[in-house]
Nucleic acid binder design. Sequence first.
DNA 1: TGTGGTATGTAGATAATCTACGTACAGGTA
DNA 2: TACCTGTACGTAGATTATCTACATACCACA
Lengths: 122, 122
Amino acid sequence: MTPAKEKYQSRTEILQGTLDMLILQVLHWGPRHGYALSKVILTNSGEILKVDTGSLYPALHRLERKGWIAAEWKASELGPRLRIYRLTKSGRKQLVVERSRWAQVTEAIEGILNPAKQETES
Amino acid sequence: MTPAKEKYQSRTEILQGTLDMLILQVLHWGPRHGYALSKVILTNSGEILKVDTGSLYPALHRLERKGWIAAEWKASELGPRLRIYRLTKSGRKQLVVERSRWAQVTEAIEGILNPAKQETES
DNA sequence: TGTGGTATGTAGATAATCTACGTACAGGTA
DNA sequence: TACCTGTACGTAGATTATCTACATACCACA
């Protein structure tokens, strides 16, 4: 009973545009390496937000290029080397921007999903 | 004082993946043509969600191909012809799916943006 | 020897959005 | 007449974030 290949899963796991905000937010709690970051996002979201490596590392490099996070290698005796990321000053500003944008957009969407009654009568 | 061209506006107006849900939701209130739909979304979101035509019409055709909405042309004496869209039965089901997905993902994201204190101490 | 977990990374495909066009019609106005 | 604004539908091409699938390397354990 080999199941047919899934028709095609258009929906992405991560809401596009929110990954950067999530990374900045978790790094605001303290420095972390990428793999740990993805596990924090996974567990703290109740296993909903699965960040796979093909999204994670490009996102980290993107944020580093923009100066919002900074990184340094850290040798490790047990296990592979780590790249520890921390939030920069401009990253903290960017987190505020992205959170406020998120609040604004979700409020707008909720306003359409659950409108005051009279507004649906147009 | 001609301002330099904006560096490059990476952020999209519409949160990627939510446009389909918004269209299905508004059509759930009643049939509408595309242009009216985009204006309802704009006004009901407090001018936040700007759906431009290059997103709107491809989205409508996409949803029609999937059978979630159906359309018919309507001649109009004053002004150009209209293509009136309505929600189908499977479209109503899809709206439920997308709303529940939205609720789940936003709850997960909020759980990271505003976590219980002890969870940030990891 | 192999497997699973940790950890970082890249290449290529996918798909939704935006920018910038084009068509057409009606009404107002200079 | 000519022009502009608003309505209405549409497409072509660029951008970009994500996913899938792969690779490398180290460690512990069976």
